[in-house]
Design a protein around this nucleic acid. Structure first.
Lengths: 205, 205
DNA sequence: CGGATAATGTAAACACCATTTACAATGATT
DNA sequence: AATCATTGTAAATGGTGTTTACATTATCCG
């Protein structure tokens, strides 16, 4: 019979060890980001949420940035998975491209907390090579699709870069409400599908 | 004969008043952002750079966020100016659209510090209506161009949103080095011009 | 099994930071 | 010249990131 789970697993009262402090800290951080924005997160408060002293996190992370970076990494991995899933769902090449873009847009919506940490926390990504690696791998997927879609490598590169930028830009603008603010109405990711379709369907001559 | 200007105007030794503390603080903040990233800025250090006590900033800004917000506002205004300039430079409608996009890309490069504060500082923009207003005005420009460029309002909206997103996405990816990292070589904004041209030249049927 | 050792926690301390308060110096106005 | 708003200071408060020395627990090896 499992103990009732809090949103963030706290250390049990009489215990000395927490059990899974690392993931608890990440959850706590994400919760703080969700509630107070990408800058509203402090290690101390996360420690408190996990029921642990303020020095405990340093057994699991070099410093605050390292915790943030690991969350970002988790986010990139999550995003990668969702994109893979949507590509593997098959369909025509064109549909694969569109679906992977839609997966990106849905990710920005459904995991706004991760998205904030990934793109708005001001993290120095170059200090964390594993993240760089994931970003490049992400572009690799897009580039592969584009190469099949276009006749020449040069066209493929243009196609890949612009598709990536368009999707990322849409996700960004959507993420901080610029789109719905501009339109004066709420927008679901699905409503952006035509934008993506039009873009993908246009030939590069 | 003007006094030799430091990068950030410091208070003169014997003086009690600074003279232009407000802009000095903004310059100091921008410098810190430039040198240490969007999170590497503290009011205390900015005060020190301006040669003033840590309480002085509060005569000019409600709090730290208000200073950040004002810098962001300056950035939006600067961007607006550059876009206006490039639109007014004339040329065909198509060229106006492309040139305003290029102005955006150049801005992200030449004013990376402002760009960071505007889009990566995690500022709560909804708390600062003047910024919201500027963002909407920016979209207004794009929407106007798109309306002239397309036959129907619906097409114009799609055109406007996707153009905005593409340009913003390119600027973002360029800003944090994702593009050059992916290509394995440096990229100048000019090298992105073909991406923009192809996009604008594609008809929406 | 039991003891050594690694892993994981705590408490206390440090320097820094954002912000407030009471007060001082200066500038502007009548 | 007296008055009052503006703009600065010093000192204090409570929060933060991080380190250090020490305590507890888990793990591994004889």
């Amino acid at each position: 019979m499992p103990v009732k789970k809090a949103i963030v697993q706290r250390k049990a009262k009489g215990e000395y060890h927490h059990g899974d402090l690392k993931t608890s800290l990440k959850q706590a951080a994400l919760r703080l980001v969700r509630e107070r924005g990408p800058r509203g997160f402090s290690l101390n408060e996360a420690s408190r949420l996990a029921g642990v002293s303020v020095a405990a996190p340093y057994r699991h992370f070099d410093d605050k940035d390292a915790l943030l970076a690991e969350i970002a990494r988790d986010g990139y991995e999550l995003l990668k998975l969702e994109i893979y899933k949507s590509v593997e769902k098959g369909g025509s090449l064109r549909d694969q491209i569109i679906e992977s873009g839609m997966a990106y847009l849905r990710f920005a919506r459904n995991h706004a907390d991760y998205f904030s940490v990934m793109f708005q926390s001001g993290l120095n990504r170059s200090k964390y090579p594993e993240i760089e690696r994931l970003v490049k791998a992400g572009l690799g997927v897009i580039l592969d699709l584009a190469k099949q879609y276009e006749r020449t490598p040069a066209l493929a590169e243009v196609r890949a870069v612009s598709t990536w930028a368009l999707v990322h830009g849409l996700a960004m603008l959507d993420h901080d409400g610029a789109l719905s603010a501009a339109a004066g109405k709420a927008r679901s990711p699905e409503q952006l599908r035509p934008v993506l379709e039009r873009f993908v369907d246009q030939p590069y001559n």
